[in-house]
Simulated scan of single mutants.
Amino acid sequence: MARRERLKQCTILDRYVPYIVSSVPGIFRLLVFVLVVIGLGSGCRSTATTSPSASSGLVPWVNRPLPLYVVPEPTPIRYPTSASPCRAGQLRVSRGRTAVGLGNQLEELVFSNVSARPCLLRGYPTISAETSAGSRWALHPQHGGTYFGRLVPADLPAGGHVFLDLATNTGCEGGRKPTVQYRNLLVTLPQGGSVRAEQVSISEDCGLSMSDFGLPERYTQPRAAAGTAGTLRARLQLPADVRAGTALRYTVTLSNPTRTTVRLNHCPGYSEGLYASGLVVRRSFVLNCRSVHAIPPHGRVQYAMQLPVPPRAEPGNGKLGWNLDTPTGPFAAQVVRVTAG
């Protein structure tokens, strides 16, 4: 009975306090409001519902577009390059890794520092090699790196190494051009002196490209601060297919794998993109943070999403990409089939 009476008082308070207060002269309104709330409102508690979560429903999509988000370029980490130039007598050459990709073939040479002092090997060497016929040819690779990436200068500590990448393409003349094999390489260093690589061979199909001496580029890895949106994880749930000219409606579940609450006071943006044959659709929006202001530790929230598929989209498989607009994401992607409109 007591609880029922309190609820009755709260209902009276909600309905009539505005009218009571508005009928009182202005200078007394604050006093009357306080007295009424104290008299009728003691013991009243808010009956408002709590913020939605994964267990209480789907957070609706809101149409609040943003300028298209671009992930910031990573900051390169430079290697030390203060040592004296390497002399030929400090170096030994061996065969490194090989790789293939889209008709390109990589053959890597490893230059190791066998001396007790650090040295620096940088720039482009000149190379001559013997063919299968026994004649020695000067090779003329194209400078600037290979299909497989760039190398950047780095000191060689005692026992350390750098690489020299050489690559060729197998796609010319319909793949019918014969491969030329080179062996007994003689590598002349940019600063003078030559190093023999008698146990190393390389092949050439459609020309050669070459990196300079160095190590693979490396970059700083962005880290999200505890309690920020970048620490979340994302999972997509898509329909099996979507018809061209309609909206792709799907959901994103953001989960918090950490022990720190992620607060959404500064509501993050997100970006979504559909990549299909002859089609790229990308756009950015503000996440709907009106009802969910935080994701607790090990909690999750499900958000409704939609992306219009242009009528010109060709039937076939496409890829949907989604990410929060932070350097660390989270990022998620999934395949969806586009059908004719």
Rank of each mutant, 00 (worst) to 15 (best):
C119G: 07
Y124F: 12
T253Q: 15
A224V: 05
F331D: 04
N288L: 08
P178T: 08
G316N: 01
A129M: 04
C86A: 08
A276K: 00
G341H: 03
L248W: 01
A247H: 09
Q334W: 01
G174T: 04
L13Y: 10
S82G: 09
T11G: 14
H293V: 11
W61K: 02
N317A: 15
G103Y: 02
D241K: 14
R15S: 12
G318V: 01
R29M: 05
G227H: 02
T261F: 03
P239V: 07
G149D: 07
P311R: 14
G171I: 14
S56D: 06
S84V: 13
Y303M: 10
R283D: 09
R4E: 15
L320A: 02
S255M: 09
R337L: 12
L40E: 07
E107C: 04
A224M: 04
S194P: 11
P80M: 07
Y124E: 05
L102Y: 07
G269F: 01
G103H: 06
T47Q: 14
G89W: 00
R312M: 13
L324Q: 00
Q334N: 10
Q199P: 03
R95G: 11
Y250K: 06
Q302M: 10
S23N: 07
A83K: 12
S203G: 10
G321I: 08
T339P: 03
S112M: 04
P60I: 15
H140G: 11
E107K: 06
L264I: 10
L58W: 07
P297I: 02
F331T: 04
S132H: 01
A333F: 04
G227R: 02
A276T: 07
E204F: 00
R223S: 13
S135L: 11
L264C: 10
R196S: 13
T49G: 12
S284Y: 04
G278H: 01
E198P: 05
S53P: 03
Y16H: 15
G145K: 07
P141D: 13
G245V: 11
E272Q: 14
L166A: 00
I202S: 03
L215V: 12
H293R: 08
V200M: 04
E73L: 15
F163I: 09
P52F: 05
L320R: 00
A340R: 11
P308Y: 04
G278M: 00
L320T: 02
F163W: 00
V309P: 01
R263G: 13
Q191D: 10
W61V: 02
N184C: 07
S128E: 11
V338Y: 01
D14A: 13
F163L: 15
L139S: 07
L40K: 05
G321E: 08
T220R: 14
A234S: 13
R29G: 01
Q237C: 10
T131Q: 05
G103V: 09
G134N: 05
S271Y: 02
G192A: 06
T251K: 04
V37E: 07
T81N: 12
L236V: 08
L236R: 03
Q181I: 14
R176N: 11
G149K: 11
S132I: 12
E198V: 08
E108I: 05
A240H: 09
R233I: 11
V114E: 06
T47H: 08
R249Q: 15
T168G: 03
L102F: 09
F148I: 13
P76L: 13
G278L: 00
